[in-house]
Design a binder for these strands. Sequence first.
DNA 1: CATGAATGAGGCTTCATTCAT
DNA 2: GATGAATGAAGCCTCATTCAT
Lengths: 213, 213, 213, 213
Amino acid sequence: MARTIGSHGAKTTEAIRKAGLKLIYQHGYEAMSLRQLAAEVGIQVGSLYNHISTKQDLLFDLIKTHMDALLLALDRALSITGDPVTLLRAFVSFHVTYHIVRKREVFIAYSELRSLEPNHYEEIVAMRRRYERRLTEILEEGCRLGMFEVQDCRVAAYGILSMLTGVCTWFRPTGRLSRDKVIDIYSRQVITGLAPRSRETGRDLGEAPESRS
Amino acid sequence: MARTIGSHGAKTTEAIRKAGLKLIYQHGYEAMSLRQLAAEVGIQVGSLYNHISTKQDLLFDLIKTHMDALLLALDRALSITGDPVTLLRAFVSFHVTYHIVRKREVFIAYSELRSLEPNHYEEIVAMRRRYERRLTEILEEGCRLGMFEVQDCRVAAYGILSMLTGVCTWFRPTGRLSRDKVIDIYSRQVITGLAPRSRETGRDLGEAPESRS
Amino acid sequence: MARTIGSHGAKTTEAIRKAGLKLIYQHGYEAMSLRQLAAEVGIQVGSLYNHISTKQDLLFDLIKTHMDALLLALDRALSITGDPVTLLRAFVSFHVTYHIVRKREVFIAYSELRSLEPNHYEEIVAMRRRYERRLTEILEEGCRLGMFEVQDCRVAAYGILSMLTGVCTWFRPTGRLSRDKVIDIYSRQVITGLAPRSRETGRDLGEAPESRS
Amino acid sequence: MARTIGSHGAKTTEAIRKAGLKLIYQHGYEAMSLRQLAAEVGIQVGSLYNHISTKQDLLFDLIKTHMDALLLALDRALSITGDPVTLLRAFVSFHVTYHIVRKREVFIAYSELRSLEPNHYEEIVAMRRRYERRLTEILEEGCRLGMFEVQDCRVAAYGILSMLTGVCTWFRPTGRLSRDKVIDIYSRQVITGLAPRSRETGRDLGEAPESRS
DNA sequence: CATGAATGAGGCTTCATTCAT
DNA sequence: GATGAATGAAGCCTCATTCAT
């Protein structure tokens, strides 16, 4: 991805990235043709190659750029002091917000992983793991302090991530619920879900009546 | 999808469906070529057309067959009597099990929705909504009875579905956790997450310290 | 190069090979487009791929087939008994004849060597060396018997081969000279050129007045 | 081919010609792209057009320049007095030397003839004929004087040219044989090959006449 | 002069689909 | 039913060339 900053062509490059984002989001990487992409940008197919080196490279560039931004933003969002509950709430808020605002990047970065060449795939998956790790660490700290109670922090983290990420598949900014409302709802559902069992009663709603093997 | 039941070719037809499932799961519908498919089955490309009418039709058939089976199985799984908590636990167990066992069908039915022609798309989405509706109803009933407390049952249902469905992206049968263990963990996390706020304290972990509008 | 003997498609395959031979001879491998080739054959471009696997493969197939035939024919032509002069005359006759009759194959096999992929290149060059070796051996035997006198049999062989091969660049079947006449002329020129120096004078026309190192 | 003599850009122009020579020799005219050429020179593709007018023009310029130089050098090499044998030896020496030293120009001028546009093609072929004519004239004079005996001077000339030109396909400056040695070998082979049949013996293996000047 | 971007044609190859055998 | 061959569209990419900056 050669990006000649300041030059006139930078505008075209950016337009290609934007159009690529849109079309890949809409139709998928495989289903998007460079013909479509060029048409969307308003240039000839061959001209694309003044800005990208390969269709595959465009995909990688889009995903990589997104992941970089995501990790950076997460760092900033979690650079607060507070107990695990506070951090978890910050995480939920950040994750949901980011996944709503950058809906398309987020979707592509996940659903087109398999379209990446092995090398690129590995690189992105590694970044994704770093992201997940941040949440897992919060859960682990919460368990240590007795604020959360989960049988497996990794599994819990995966569950939370799936739940939150799902937001970007149905949330509409113009819909019934505001973004903050959704964050509120999910924060409660997530944090309550990790609550330790009540000491007094000895059981809670989540425990199965009979034991399983 | 012409299936000549009983004839010798039925075996081939089934082989095509099986191979199609595998290849679409691996590479995606757009990325799978009928040449690959034929090769996987061990026949020539042209011969495929004795069994399928169209690549698109094969996709639809696979998804439709899956959705029929899914809804039927859900019916069976929820045909028990019990309070919402019991039903919810049954739902979680069913959903996770099905998504682990029929991992590929489930994945395709979701990720290749966009590859369906409008008519087919509508049909499948309607079925999917019926599925989601079953969970939402359980939550609504639970709220009515005071066993759950959520601000929005649809949103809660989406969250739960996302969480549970995520299982099929990381679960490995040979992994650290057994299927039952995973069901156990998620049941607790889901049901606890819906628990009403403690009456005594008047607030719970999930509520934000400051008020929101 | 899949060649299904007896099937209807074999005719097309052969037509492609023939047209490929013609076009590569005329314009060169790089300059020949598959569009041209398909047009020459009278089919669609894509249909070519029912008969060839690759443009490169077509080239290799043409050259390899030629080299096989050439070596086989040489074997037959030299399967006579006789002294080196007789064998050399047989070689000249064979080489010139073959290079006139199979003018295009011969030309391609030489001029498009550089268009072959490394593996293919090596294979063909090895065959070519076997061909050259046959001539060199005749010269060596002739020298042993005192019938020829050359300072370096390999160089002499190269010279002879170049001279004879050049025929196919200018010979016209309808031209002034018959094929047999040309063979006659070249036989004499080649064989005379290898004649030992006259015993009486101790020197001959080919020796330079001043000595060289 | 605009050559701004004396200007700074002349260096670039010369670099382009040199790189073009190299790349066309290596890959052929059709296979060489202007992108490669520009990269080899170290400039951008567009910049080439400040120095050449067309890819075709570059080819023609390279060949034409070479042919001019070749004919001029031949004139100089043959501007000696002497009998046909002396002249022939001078020709052989010159031709071999030139074809070894200017290996790439020579090769291109021959192998890329077919890549020239009709006009250019005719022009170069005419020059080539003038070159060949010089050799033919020597042979004709030699025949007139009874020093050579060939049935057809044109054919003999073609044969000799082919033989000598072949040198540039296998000669390596660092190889087993020095350039002078090769010239020596070929001079003898060529001249001996033209020797008249011995009057006394009536055989044709090339006996030397008694004297030469 | 050099540059980078644009063009439009065309490169090789693969695609889903059809159909005579 | 299966096959191999044909189709025509489309896939990604590279080409030589032009031109404003």
